[in-house]
Structures are given as C-alpha cells and as structure tokens.
C-alpha cells in the first residue's frame, strides 16, 4: 500500500506531529510493499500543492495538532482547496491523526465527528482518527514519551498489515477519555508538577518570572 501522509503542523521546524508520524511510518513499513510518502504543509502555497497530491493519492493520512478544539487554520485552508472534490473521491481511503497537550481524549471527540463528516462529504472511505493527548514536548523528550511513541509504532504496524485502523486499538491508545473521579487528586498533583517543571522552567529560561507571565497587556 502506498500511503500519502500530510503533516499539517503549522510550526516552521521540528514538531510533535512529525515525531509521532515517524514512529507510525516505521511500523507501517514493516509490512513488505508498504511505502509512506510525507507531504509537509505549513504555508499558503503548500496547501494548494497538497490538494493536488491529495487528489492523486491512493490512501491518505492527514495529521495535525489540535488548535482551539479543531484543526489549525492551515488545515482548514487545505480543506477549502479540496472543495472541487466534494463527492468525487470515489472511496479514497482517508484517516486522520490529531495530537495535543491535554491528556484526555474528550478534547478531540467533537472534531473527530467533523472529520468523519467531511471525509464522507468528499466521498472518501473514512478509516478513523488517531487521537493522542499528552503530546506537548515530544520533540524535547522522547524518553519520557516511550509509551506514546511505541503506541504510534504499533498502530502503524497493525494498519500496515490489515489496511484498516483498529477502533479498539485507537481507543486504548487515546485513553483516558476524561479523568475519572478517583484520579482527580492524583491529576491535580500531576498538573502542579507539569506547571512547575515544564512551564515554569521554560519561563525561567527566558528570564520571565511567574508574576510577569501573567501580564495583561491589553486590558483588565
């Protein structure tokens, strides 16, 4: 199977989406004959060109970070380029990968419904959406994210073998859906640690105190 993978991270350089995709592809290409082609799109011209690659592709995975609970504006620009293809994709296989910082899967569930809807409106064969939270900082520390990366590899591997995204495997990978009541205390401690170790440290590196980080330059 030839899989065209569109990486729609708006970042100019290294990005968490690419780190996940790398492992996914590794798994996918374990099966002989499978080949993934990466298409990077993060500027206006690239979205236009990507639309042509999309039209020509046999099977597609569209990957991006979650921005304000949906696809980033750039991916929407790409979708708008696909407007002439509405109802004309003849069952082209399309799947999505959405990654973000918050841990719970629930943040991307409404978007997932939209992605399924738009894939079907294009007359594509919607394969599913890989949802993974807790991905902020993948580019910085791969060691701390072993499970996340192994999971991406395993999903790629199984997809490579069966040519379908396994719903159960995706759900296991995305868990937890929300924080269970009994976990709330643990999560509150974890969040304190993330704020301290991850965010405060990053601020400090830039010479910004916690107080300064709460600046209100535009009003109240």
């Amino acid at each position: 199977m030839k899989l065209s993978i569109f990486n729609g991270s708006p970042k100019p350089g290294v990005n968490n989406t690419a780190v996940l995709l790398e492992r996914f592809i590794e798994g996918f290409e374990v099966t002989e004959g499978n080949k993934a082609q990466m298409i990077r799109m993060n500027h206006e011209q690239a979205y236009k060109e990507a639309a042509l690659s999309f039209e020509a592709a046999e099977a597609v995975l569209i990957a991006f970070p979650l921005y304000s609970y949906a696809m980033p504006a750039g991916i929407k620009t790409f979708f708008e380029q696909l407007e002439p293809l509405l109802g004309k994709c003849n069952g082209k296989k399309v799947g999505f990968l959405v990654q973000y910082g918050f841990i719970e899967a629930v943040h991307a569930r409404a978007l997932e419904k939209y992605l399924e809807y738009i894939a079907k409106a294009l007359d594509c064969d919607y394969m599913g959406t890989i949802i993974k939270g807790g991905c902020d900082g993948l580019t910085k520390s791969k060691r701390g994210a072993k499970k996340t990366l192994t999971g991406a590899y395993e999903i790629g591997k199984k997809f490579g073998e069966t040519k379908v995204l396994d719903k159960q495997q995706l759900d296991d990978y995305s868990a937890p859906e929300i924080q269970k009541q009994q976990n709330v205390l643990v999560m509150k401690v974890l969040i304190k640690i993330i704020n301290k170790v991850y965010w405060e440290k990053s601020l400090k590196k830039n010479g910004i105190s916690v107080e300064e980080s709460f600046a209100k330059p535009y009003g109240n």
């Binding site: 918050f102 929300i178 009541q181 509150k188 969040i191 704020n195 980080s213």
Partner: peptide, 13 residues
C-alpha cells in the same frame, strides 16, 4: 490564555 494547566470538569484546561 496562560500556559499553566488546571483541572476543570475532569479534564485539563
């Protein structure tokens, strides 16, 4: 927004 996280309605914000 601010980078710091909080737990609201059993999810991060």
């Amino acid at each position: 927004g601010h980078p710091f996280l909080v737990l609201r309605e059993n999810r991060m914000a």
